[in-house]
Design a protein around this nucleic acid. Sequence first.
DNA 1: CGACACATGTAACACGTTACATGATTTG
DNA 2: CAAATCATGTAACGTGTTACATGTGTCG
Lengths: 179, 179
Amino acid sequence: MSVRNGLLALLAEHPAHGYGLKSEFEASTAGVWPLNVGQVYTTLGRLERDGLVEAAASDTGTEHARQPWRITEEGREALAEWYRSAVDERSSRDELVIKVLLAIAAESADVARILQNQRAAALRRLQEMTRHKREADPERELPWVLFLDALSLKTEAEIRWLDLCEERLEQSRGKRGRS
Amino acid sequence: MSVRNGLLALLAEHPAHGYGLKSEFEASTAGVWPLNVGQVYTTLGRLERDGLVEAAASDTGTEHARQPWRITEEGREALAEWYRSAVDERSSRDELVIKVLLAIAAESADVARILQNQRAAALRRLQEMTRHKREADPERELPWVLFLDALSLKTEAEIRWLDLCEERLEQSRGKRGRS
DNA sequence: CGACACATGTAACACGTTACATGATTTG
DNA sequence: CAAATCATGTAACGTGTTACATGTGTCG
């Protein structure tokens, strides 16, 4: 729903056409999440179908120069609802967690190695981000800086979790060994 | 790809049929991510198409009792590659970050309120998890405990990020105000 | 002129989700 | 017997991704 609601958020500011929305979306998200133009048009089609968006002007005549899109009242309500509601992490599948849990369940998998690999990759990412952060200007590149913040914090949490996994696994093994 | 690779991980242990895979998947992930059986069969179909799994026995005769599925050599390689490679957060769209960045871009949105709402929800979740953790037994419910760990750490990171957002926004406003 | 940004769209596909249809086996 | 669990599958839909086809305007 990110793209869908993202377009809605942009259209809430001012009417725009597909290509412009692509540019604005990428600009707003610091170019981090490139957006295929095609998806903008298909998404706009779905938004129109759902009554959240409408063509801003008469579509008479020229095919290749459609008038921009405008958000509807219903669209504004849907957007407000998106803003109001909290993103729920619980329901979405976390690939890393699934991977580790299934590796634990599968005796054949080398859990220790998986944890090490993931942590090594996470540490590399963290270093890279720290480098980027030093070069970034919080005034002029606020979205980019906020993205780096988010990614750093998430990565740190990931590393802590991997550590915790190792600890708990070791404790499990210890208890099992003694019994 | 979580379901797809998850099934592969389970099949790497021993051949199984669709329904059993559903149960095992849910058991391995502490029942946190329920899996519709239908998806198991469609996913198995795609895995078969890609040569990662195969029917474990002769499919002669009875329709309604298909023989279990078995992982292929190619399937084992794909699974090993999944285990080896690190999950990349960078490329996947983080809905919360997108929401906040677009709200900042859109002057009409009440960013402060969004941040407050998200934090309030995150704090509620955190309390709930702490409660669950107290009741959980790391010995007998390791997957469940690890899931709670992951969710707690992620949520804490989320809260820290929301705080950071407020700080940076305030600094931005301050600078803009003085200039 | 040729390259590049602007601009609109379609088609095909991947993954995930829900709902539905069908039947066998077990168990209270 | 009735209900629950085990078991297999299909259909329809939503979101997202990539690739492709097509055309306009601008600028070096």
